[in-house]
Design a protein around this nucleic acid. Structure first.
Lengths: 108, 108
DNA sequence: ATTAATCATCGCAATATTGCGATTAACCAA
DNA sequence: TTGGTTAATCGCAATATTGCGATGATTAAT
């Protein structure tokens, strides 16, 4: 019904899914790549860089903030965003472990 | 409008987003974890393992197949699935590189 | 106080996703 | 041929996501 049955999965599985959502849209990938490249807090630039409206960019930033992989600090009238290092590290460790956990199929 | 503007992003960004979608739902995470753990082709077991209906599981398997991260080989009346190693390796390299590309913020 | 700049939020529309029951298709065995 | 088994697909319903224009809120500057 368009509603994910989160309660029947483990906390870990739900967290992995949430972290993956940060990368599951090209606009969010572009945002994260830009923040990684600048290595610093970015203010209004993102709207100029992305081929999307200000409202849409703001929404993607909100979603990334919800996941925690970026953080915004208010410097009115600007809000500056940058990579939130602990969560980025969490993602690195999580996907690193998960993707390293497969070695080789014993069948086909 | 619920429709991602894929054409305004790079092929790489779209591919990253697609690979991330494989992990962006707890049911698909559970499926992949199970296939990794068994290291082999799994036939009907998945429906028994997951707390979802056969139709729903089949749909997630279809999505994972579309992305290419799993492959199914038909052994009627069964269809057996396993990790598709080249694409799994692609994901490992892609997210490995991407997540390693961030070092440290020079600001906050 | 007024204006300009910046960003969040609202409201809307359209498409996508998730989920399941029921059906269909394909195949094997008896 | 007739069942039985398995999995894909159909059809439907409900929620989620994506996108944008317009509006609002906030603050600095004039």
């Amino acid at each position: 019904m368009g509603v994910t049955k989160t309660e029947v999965f483990t906390t870990e599985q739900n967290r992995i899914a949430d972290l993956a959502k940060a990368f599951a849209h090209p606009a969010r990938v572009a945002i994260l790549q830009y923040l990684v490249a600048t290595k610093a807090c970015v203010c209004g630039d993102l709207v100029d860089v992305l081929p999307l409206s200000q409202a849409t960019v703001s929404q993607h930033l909100k979603e990334l903030s919800r996941i925690g992989i970026i953080k915004g600090n208010v410097q009115p009238p600007r809000v500056c965003y940058c990579i939130n290092e602990p969560v980025w590290e969490e993602a690195r460790a999580t996907f690193g472990d998960l993707l390293a956990s497969f070695t080789q199929n014993t069948c086909c």
